[in-house]
């Protein structure tokens, strides 16, 4: 029985009727599937407790959205999504179920645990982390290092970085210009990365210099299965 992995989506508007929708890149569902999970999407923003009760793990996805009319994707929708993702993260934490945060998901988790964010850091730091690639250095003892080694290229698609890291979190990867690129929780089954591992799989890894990230999803789904066994007392 595959662990059920709940994924969050981004706001979108369909082209035909401009009706409010959620969208998810197929790279996420394909990666969860490759990792051994059964992907599903949380569609009701009030039902976070129910999703936490029925699923075995949570993937907080990166920011994405689509609108044929930019005015439809207002700031209030971003606020709605942030509130929902932080609420569903808390619900999964309370249920003792694993969470994988990707890009925006990493940022949401840092906020949930009490850290803060640094938007548009490129303006102050003078570094580019949007639509590029760069190397990272992993921390000893981390899952990321066990799976992929001490240093490698990853994709980079973000304008916001972690400001203050929440005290319960441990840095597991850093960029050469000092951006926190991954963390784990000290005790809880929570892992997160600032890059997009779901876009680094199969025949079209992005960047081509990076490792295939399927093992990260295998490890996450295995963690979900392990926690499930533990909960069921096996």
């Amino acid at each position: 029985m595959r662990p059920i992995i709940c994924i969050t989506g981004g706001y979108a508007f369909d082209r035909q009727f401009h009706s409010k929708s959620l969208t998810l890149n197929k790279t996420y569902t394909a990666a969860v599937t490759a990792g051994g999970g059964l992907p599903t999407l949380a569609l009701d923003f009030d039902a976070f407790d129910e999703y936490a009760a029925m699923a075995d793990g949570l993937v907080l996805s990166g920011s994405q959205g689509f609108s044929p009319d930019p005015s439809l994707l207002s700031d209030s929708l971003h606020t709605e999504r942030n509130q929902f993702e932080q609420a569903i993260a808390r619900a999964f934490l309370q249920a003792g179920k694993p969470i994988l945060g990707i890009c925006l998901g990493l940022q949401q988790l840092n906020v949930v645990f009490g850290g803060d964010l640094h938007p548009n850091f490129k303006l102050e730091d003078g570094v580019e982390h949007m639509m590029t690639k760069h190397t990272i250095e992993t921390a000893e003892g981390s899952l990321i290092r066990r799976l992929f080694g001490t240093g490698f290229y990853i994709n980079s698609r973000h304008n916001v970085k972690i400001g203050t890291l929440a005290p319960e979190l441990v840095v597991t990867a850093t960029s050469p210009d000092g951006v926190i690129e991954a963390f784990e929780h000290k005790t809880l089954p929570v892992i997160a990365c600032q890059w997009h591992p779901e876009r680094m799989r199969g025949d079209f890894p992005e960047p081509p210099e990076g490792p295939d990230m399927t093992p990260l999803f295998e490890s996450f789904v295995a963690l979900c299965a392990e926690e499930k066994r533990r909960r069921c007392g096996e």
Binding site: T23, L24, L43, D44, A47, E50, M54
Partner: peptide, 23 residues
């Protein structure tokens, strides 16, 4: 991409169901 209208989810929720998406 997958895209799913929130109208569907809302209609299911208001009727007392928990909407989930299949991929």
């Amino acid at each position: 991409h997958f895209v799913i209208s929130l109208d569907y989810g809302k209609a299911i929720s208001q009727a007392g169901g928990l909407p989930l998406v299949a991929f």
